[in-house]
């Protein structure tokens, strides 16, 4: 997995609440058996018309935001289907962090597995960053995972919380499976115990 430590990038504002994973990557694109290549279809139904032409009003189609690496989004981002295609599509497009007041649980987990940092901040701070993002390409936000801060283009600094284990994995680009397999003795011991206590499982 790619490491994440510091990021300085353009942030795109998406104030809509309840942006679900069907919006992030519509199901017609779930038919792939690969992880890559989904970026062109990110937000497909909002981004293109039926004939495949870009809808100019959609934020990521505007010249200022085509290179966005951060999304500032409305509440409950990533709700709905568990599809990991959503963070794959975000990552493939180049999005490395999403800021919102809250995220759906599975999406939130999936982000960390794909080098994307989901940042939860209180409403007024998200509102402030939303305004900042609306300024366009000149407004670069900075995210420092080590320090756990987001800095707006005006220099306002907001502190965020992140789970220490997840932070460690993102900073070092660690793969979960490798880490878990190091604990295989615990798993074996658990299975032995279960074979006696709950043999029907």
């Amino acid at each position: 997995m790619e490491k994440f430590d510091k990021l300085s990038g353009i942030a795109a504002p998406m104030p809509l609440v309840n942006i679900d994973t069907d919006m992030i990557i519509p199901k017609v694109f779930l038919k792939t058996i690969k992880r890559s290549g989904l970026g062109v279809n990110l937000f497909d139904e909002m981004r293109y018309d039926r004939d495949g032409n870009e809808i100019p009003d959609f934020v990521l189609n505007k010249p200022a935001y085509r290179e966005a690496q951060i999304l500032v989004a409305g509440d409950n981002f990533g709700c709905g289907s568990s599809r990991e295609h959503a963070p794959w599509a975000l990552a493939d497009f180049g999005i490395k962090a999403v800021i919102s007041t809250s995220f759906a649980d599975i999406f939130f987990n999936n982000c960390f597995k794909n080098g994307i940092l989901p940042i939860v901040l209180p409403q007024e701070q998200v509102d402030a960053l939303m305004k900042d993002a609306e300024k366009g390409a000149n407004a670069r936000m900075e995210i420092d995972l080590e320090a756990q801060t987001v800095t707006s283009s005006d220099g306002d600094v907001f502190h965020f919380e992140v789970d220490p284990h997840r932070k460690h994995c993102l900073l070092n680009g660690l793969d979960d499976i490798g880490l878990t397999l190091e604990k295989s003795a615990s798993i074996d011991a658990f299975e032995k115990k279960m074979a006696l206590e709950r043999p029907w499982v």
């Binding site: 990991e84 599975i106 999936n110 794909n114 499976i177 878990t180 798993i187 299975e191």
Partner: peptide, 21 residues
């Protein structure tokens, strides 16, 4: 019982466990 992402599917296939809080 709960839903998991594909990376977690791989994790469960490989280890029969899930990293959870």
């Amino acid at each position: 019982a709960h839903g998991i992402g594909t990376s977690e599917v791989e994790h469960v296939l490989a280890t029969q466990t899930l990293i959870q809080k």
